[in-house]
Design a protein around this nucleic acid. Structure first.
Length: 438
RNA sequence: GGGCUCGUAGUGAAGUGGUUAUCACGCCUCCCUGUCACGGAGGAGAUCACCGGUUCAAAUCCGGCCGAGCCCGCCA
């Protein structure tokens, strides 16, 4: 028997159809009883007025898997303008245990309830409002892939199991690997640069692992990163423009195609500049502006403090009409060995893309000259003979063009697009310093 | 890693020393032919996170411990 989806029911007035899905809501009025079914397409209401059919549902809880066969009748009073009548009930999978949360009601996202949210994730992800977040997430990455594929980027996959921590920076997880010590990749940095030597333009959407003991609203230990690397770029500006274009394309499209869902999720109105430009301020400029505006002196900081990120984003939205802003030219002491340095200026050719007060991407130009790389690694106190650098340096030794790219936090993009308070809310099964389940 | 805050039925909350710990939703029974946060009557469900202390008396005060949240540092 062919299955009809909830969203197709209204198109089949007068036909006898079978809908299959989960029991979503029972409204029992005595002789007249409304049973709402949920499937992947949404909800459909059925009218059960036969006592024997209704009795099949006695003692069965929300979540029971049902197959309902009935005649589609147009009725203004039903959701979607149609409902099933003369329904025959078949219980496919009975559920007799009462669920620990109410699936048909919006799930609380207050910070003090996040523990409950994730403890009951298996069930609350059945809530239609909750599902919107992850449908939007799926499409955000779909649009990103569309943009990058159209611009001749090749999607790659790189290993997450690595031999040694070599990149520096974030703390890495260590694990036993048949008697050796392996680490989980904190980013695909080395591999994506290596791949520039083959494909010029590459990207990866995958997991990265950070063992930082950070307990904040913007940190995960397992995060989803979009990593992009682009060869033969003329300068840093070309990389900044490409990431800005991609981000704006993605945001405009998601606000267009998911307008209703974003509204019901209380997402902020999207503001982007008419000319598609993302304003840029140097770190030094932001320190000066912030210090003048708030009387808090940050001019000695090497990076932006979180409040400065919020402040400059607020400034960009109110004064320049855009939710996106670049903080560029970090002080040279903040750079890593693979960054392109502007020694005269004392800065690194590195920009952070801020979206609604949060850093969502780092966008640097890389040093591509083999001799300079080796020197910068030595200056950083690294052992260039180390196994972990051997293969990486081969790519440079045998010819890498000037290149740059970005590490882009997908979880944070989803969070800020929707206006969620905590990055974990944008993640199905978040991993943080004290959560490994579910 | 540092600081601050919070743990009360399945879920969310009220209760700041005094009889049997209160309410809403959910659940169970019954009534109800147009519900969509259905309505009405009744019912079950809580060792007040845990351990110890103060007190005639502790959910409430004190100490410890476990768990959680937020901010900072660091990062995407």
């Amino acid at each position: 028997m062919t299955r009809t989806l909830a969203r197709e029911v209204a198109k089949k007035i007068g036909e006898t159809v079978t809908v299959r899905g989960w029991l979503h809501k029972k409204r029992l009025l005595g002789g007249l009883n409304f049973i709402t079914i949920r499937d992947r397409s949404g909800l459909v209401q059925t009218l059960v007025d036969n006592k024997d059919e209704l009795e099949k549902l006695r003692g069965l809880q929300i979540g029971t898997v049902l197959s309902l066969r009935g005649t589609v009748v147009a009725d203004e009073r039903a959701m979607g303008g149609a409902e099933l009548h003369d329904v025959k009930v078949e219980v496919e999978v009975p559920v007799t245990e009462e669920p620990p949360i109410e699936i048909d009601k919006p799930i609380s996202h207050k910070s003090e309830h996040l523990d409950t949210l994730f403890e009951h994730r298996v069930l609350n992800i059945r809530n239609l409002q909750e599902q919107k977040i992850f449908k939007i997430r799926a499409d955000l990455t779909r649009y990103i892939r569309a943009f990058l594929n159209d611009n001749e980027f090749i999607e790659i996959d790189t290993p997450k199991l690595l031999a040694e921590p070599t990149e520096g920076g974030a703390e890495v997880f260590k694990l036993d690997y048949f008697g050796k010590t392996a680490t989980l990749a904190q980013s695909p940095q080395f591999y994506k640069q290596i791949m520039v030597g083959a494909f010029e333009r590459v990207y990866e959407i995958g997991h990265s692992y950070r063992a930082e003991p950070s307990a904040t609203t913007r940190h995960l230990t397992e995060l989803t990163m979009l990593d992009i690397e682009m060869g033969f770029v003329a300068d840093h500006d070309e990389v900044l423009d490409m990431v800005a274009d991609m981000t704006q394309y993605t945001l405009r499209r998601v606000y267009d195609e998911h307008a209703d869902d974003l509204r019901t999720l209380n997402a902020p109105e999207l503001k982007l500049a008419e000319d598609n430009k993302v304003p840029r301020f140097t770190i030094a400029e932001i320190h000066d502006m912030y210090t003048k505006a708030t009387k808090t002196d940050t001019t000695q900081e090497k990076d932006l403090i979180p409040d400065e990120e919020r402040w400059i984003s607020d400034y960009a939205r109110k004064q320049l009409g855009t939710d996106l802003v670049y903080a560029v030219r970090f002080p040279i002491e903040a750079g890593k060995f693979y960054h392109k340095l502007d020694v005269e200026d004392g800065t690194v050719l590195w920009g952070d893309l801020l979206f609604r007060g949060l850093e969502i991407s780092t966008v640097p130009l890389r040093e591509n000259n083999y001799e300079k790389m080796v020197q910068q690694m030595k200056d950083a106190g690294l052992d260039i003979e180390h196994e972990g650098f051997k293969y990486y340096l081969q790519a440079f030794k045998y010819g890498l063009p000037q290149h740059g790219g970005c590490g882009f936090g997908i979880d944070r993009l989803v969070q800020k697009t929707i206006g969620l308070a905590n990055v974990k809310e944008a993640t199905l099964f978040p991993r943080d310093i004290n959560r490994l389940t579910p």
